[in-house]
Nucleic acid binder design. Structure first.
Length: 392
DNA sequence: TCTGGGGTCCTAGGACCC
DNA sequence: TCTGGGGTCCTAGGACCC
């Protein structure tokens, strides 16, 4: 058994992934500002090439704004089939080094390479090999962070983007974290960043020097504890290769708000069908159905119902969400977005087997009832009860 | 600037049970 | 006629991530 290296965690992140795939599909786009998403009237940018970022375009930016910043840019609709195909090749490369690969999205993953160093060299060496393999096999550059923990590895890959590699030695973690903006921590978004800013907490170092009770009052117990630990470089989360999904959903923002019940119900039927199809495809059934409705003024309502029996049937989902919709307050709502979510998932195989078993037992017991009514008690005994022998 | 789509997790209150 | 404490499930909303 070789010793576990001090920095065995890799975070690998493909650079400007969707935009890079679009350049592979059409090499004449190379060197141009390319943006994926934001082709509709209400879209946002999903991915921007580094040329586009020079204009200030960022992902999640409203398309209208991106167009203003970069009028000569190329805007393309997302082609998830192509992204998935390239993502599969990416994952193949990673899996050729270790089975301990945890995909985070199509374009990034964590690896624990502690068991791979004998075969392939140090974690840093493995990172270099992966970068070469990904460039060759996927045709896209990537960035690799190497560290003792997941979140430091992730920050390291962020720091060396694009097309880089950065090792943060375990002994240097606090020095590495100290000057970084607090917003870079996993779990600090816009709102939390604002809250922290009000206390003049701007860097991860500032956060680490703030007494925990103060953070607790600001953020609640769970988040405070979590951020306090991260800011001290503590992150014990392991690389987990597979976790079953907790929910399946589809939603759609309409180009123009809907206000006719007929249109709204038709969209809910379509969304229900897509969710149910996904459930069946992935082998799940859902116990809880959630309707999401975003109104013209952007307020978002959710309504849910938990069913006695799990389902993967579109008509069942539609039945529930249409009732939930009719029970919403007010009338003639203007609907910007509708979503249908299935949660409380159970594996369909297990559920159906249990059901089958239950029904079969139900049938057996009813048959036994009939026989005993005719021939007297003990005339029929299930085989499984006989197996121990008549004398017990 | 006017805000996508697919997810995860947390909080908080109320129902219900022991 | 005043009122415990803990656990679990359900629901609604919200922050956050890519």
């Amino acid at each position: 058994m070789t010793e576990r290296p001090p920095e065995p965690i890799l975070h690998v992140d493909l650079d400007a992934f969707y935009a890079s795939v679009e350049v592979l599909k059409d090499p004449s786009l190379a060197g141009k500002p390319v943006m994926v998403g934001g082709t509709g009237s209400r879209g946002v940018v999903a991915s921007a090439s580094y040329e586009a970022r020079k204009f200030g375009v960022r992902s999640a930016m409203p398309a209208v704004r991106a167009r203003r910043l970069c009028p000569e840019g190329v805007f393309l609709p997302a082609d998830f089939e192509a992204y998935r195909a390239h993502s599969n090749r990416f994952r193949e490369v990673l899996l050729s080094y270790t089975p301990l690969v945890e995909p985070i999205a199509l374009d990034e993953a964590f690896l624990d390479v502690a068991g791979a160093t004998r075969l392939f060299g140090s974690p840093e060496e493995i990172g270099r090999r992966i970068r070469a393999d990904v460039a060759r096999e996927v045709g896209v550059t990537c960035s690799v962070g190497v560290a003792a923990s997941k979140f430091v590895a992730k920050l390291a890959s962020d720091e060396c983007k694009p097309d880089g590699l950065l090792v943060v030695p375990a002994a240097r973690v606090l020095d590495f974290l100290d000057p970084l903006p607090a917003g870079r921590l996993w779990g600090v978004g816009e709102k939390t960043g604002d809250l922290l800013g009000r206390l003049s907490i701007r860097t991860i170092g500032d956060l680490g020097r703030t007494p925990e009770p103060i953070l607790e009052r600001l953020l609640g117990e769970q988040s405070a504890r979590h951020l306090f630990e991260l800011s001290h470089g503590l992150d014990a989360r392991e690389v987990v290769p597979y976790e079953p999904p907790r929910s399946v959903s589809h939603e759609e923002t309409f180009d123009r708000d809907l206000d006719e019940d007929e249109d709204i119900l038709r969209e809910m039927l379509a969304l229900s069908g897509r969710v149910a199809a996904r459930l069946r495809e992935d082998g799940y059934q859902a116990r809880t159905v959630v309707l999401k409705a975003r109104l013209a003024n952007f307020t978002t309502l959710t309504r849910s119902r938990t069913l006695p029996d799990a389902t993967d049937v579109g008509a069942d989902l539609y039945h529930v969400v249409s009732e939930l919709y009719r029970a919403l307050p007010g009338e003639r709502r203007r609907i910007r977005l509708l979503g249908v979510q299935a949660t409380g998932l159970v594996a369909a195989g297990a559920e159906q087997l249990a059901l089958l078993r239950g029904e079969r037992w139900g049938d057996v017991e009813r048959a036994v009832d009939r026989i005993e009514r005719r021939f007297g008690r003990g005339a029929a005994t299930p085989a499984s009860l006989l197996r121990r022998g008549p004398r017990g």
